[in-house]
Write a protein that binds this DNA or RNA. Structure first.
Lengths: 208, 208, 208, 208
DNA sequence: CATGAATGAGGTTTCATTCAT
DNA sequence: CATGAATGAAACCTCATTCAT
């Protein structure tokens, strides 16, 4: 995250090459998983030699961890924007929409994350605890307050968040399956509409 | 020399050992992914020697494919039981419940499947086409008919199925994350209640 | 040293191959040092494939440590045979002779040991403490008693032992230099005679 | 372009940097051996960049050879000072004392040399032949003459020199072992006294 | 005079698979 | 039916050295 003390500001070449490597690694890790990915693939995809990759990163794991850290930051942005003072239903529907947009804009990031969690989060567990959990707890409590006040239907905030994550990321993570079932280039716009309808009805406050 | 043409009926030992291997492999593949799993791990977990594993299966890939085939069969069972003549809302809520139960009863199978799809379904694509797609198309069409008839809310059947898969399997596939956020042994019963409520409201036919 | 509990008695092939590997490794380590030696060299010299080497030993370091352990045992034998009840002068001269014979019979072992000590004994330090030190302390005390009783000249036992080690092992460890200075195949018998004379005079009790 | 023919007089910076590099390399080579040492370690220890190291020396080997040449010069100094016209016994005891002082003052040099010889003197053999051998032959002949004349005990000059080298350098080369056996900071002064006594008695002319 | 960037050769080790019994 | 023994391919990584400025 923060630059080590001694290192001088990275040169333009350094920034460009680090970016290239991370871009290539994202591709490879997202497709093959951590163990399935090889430095050879990353090097070839980045257009650099393998030892040169290791000139920029200490090893395979450091590349992976760097990606996960970067990802986590972006990943949490929509959650941070939940506004306690906004209209509850609108806020949540906006959250669903943003999350879906992110999954569609960054499917590789989503799959990278899914891969890591599937394997027990061996390299990202501390980050989950330190960064994700506080945000999650806050958001769940906010939703619970909204539900308690009758502004939305009676739902458990934590499970609601899980369901939003699941339904939106599904379009990135299970893309291979969806392509087989809906045709490879079927526009996935139906997803936004569907999820909007689903949560609109599911969250509408009780009519009593 | 005078071997029977196809394959002799497997002995009891053979059946037991094949079962042991598959059981062990499920463990290992689900935890480490296909590439991350090693025959050594599988052999140790199965209590057999590595060459003996290869006596029963031609190679690592065959074990994996065998697992995927077995899995697919069970996996589709709930979908097959959707009854066109049943009460639409009840049928769908039952499907959600069964799917969630399966995820909780067979989390390793769910993760094995997720792993495979995440990596582009390289080994399971034909099965998806041959077995899953017909069922999926049928179920989606059924739901669309129900929606068209006003028996449930206006939803796109295909996306509804996706959302059910996503929300139920999430509890198995993202277990590591959920454990971090909810505590390691938090009972996940809230899930069934939440999903039941969610889909009950979301699928209720319009009140017009 | 002692067999791990589970391992079955090693087969004849296993014993033969382990012996081959250790023999080859002794050659290579003694000549090039730990870091300078490569598994390739050891494998070629042993007539086995590189992975097969690693089938018998967990890694390069384990081979090295195994050699050091074996060596230490033989190395200490002459010291153990110092007889407190023997004639002091004869005992010490016999020790010198035996030590020299060992250096001439096992020059590779001597060089392997010297290499390890030169580099700070990183892998053998515990053994020095546990096995060598008690023997050393005992022998030094014995010599000090002999000197105190006037049976030999007034010498510090510890330094006497060091000098014996140094002078005898020198013929193995600095063989390359000696060959250059004395001719490659000069019989080194002069050494035994010289050292016998040296210590005979140096240790003769004072004539007072 | 218009470079002077041979080499311009080295600037002050050049001399300082060459010295720094050699000082750092001595440290690293003495501790890890030739193969175990890396340019990175030397560069870091010298406070220079790796390419800069190679600006001053053509490669790793040249640094090593330069060190060996420097060392050899100092190393032989005590031998050169053996005075044929001095008192034989005193001359030899003085040689022992000087050699021991050098070992204690320059233990890294001693270990560097030992390392090189242990590995068969691949890089220093010509030097041994050209510089060491004549001196050695001369000194051995001198000692033999002294012995023949009855001025000292009957010893073989060549083996006597070996024994002096061995016993004095031992305190530098086997320091790790000695530290384990005598305690890490035990003053090693006993060594001088011991060796003086040893050679005094061993070299005293026969009383006949 | 100095160095950030790059790389080819080679190091140890892992692993799926085959051999031979 | 089972397994000790063996191996080729390829993985990650190190390191002396060169390039280009």
């Amino acid at each position: 995250m923060t630059e080590p003390l001694k290192s001088p500001a990275p040169s333009r070449i350094q920034r460009r090459n680090r970016a290239r490597i991370l871009e290539a690694a994202l591709d490879v890790f997202a497709q093959h998983g951590y163990r399935g990915a090889t430095l050879d693939q990353i090097a070839e995809s980045a257009g650099l030699s393998k030892p040169n990759i290791l000139y920029y990163f200490a090893g395979k794991e450091e590349i992976h961890v760097t990606l996960l850290h970067q990802l986590m930051d972006n990943w949490l942005e929509p959650l941070r924007q939940l506004d306690p003072d906004g209209s509850p239903l609108e806020e949540l529907l906006t959250y669903v929409r943003r999350k879906l947009e992110m999954s569609q804009a960054f499917p590789r990031e989503s799959r990278l994350f899914a891969n890591e969690i599937l394997q027990g989060a061996p390299r990202i567990a501390p980050l989950l605890e330190a960064e994700l959990k506080p945000l999650f707890d806050g958001a769940a409590a906010l939703i619970d307050r909204w539900a308690g006040a009758g502004a939305i239907a009676q739902v458990d905030g934590r499970h609601l968040i899980f369901s939003i994550w699941a339904t939106t990321q599904h379009y990135a993570d299970f893309e291979a399956q969806i392509a087989k079932l809906m045709g490879p280039d079927a526009p996935r716009e139906g997803a936004a509409e569907f999820l909007n309808g689903l949560y609109t009805r599911a969250l509408a406050p009780d009519q009593s």
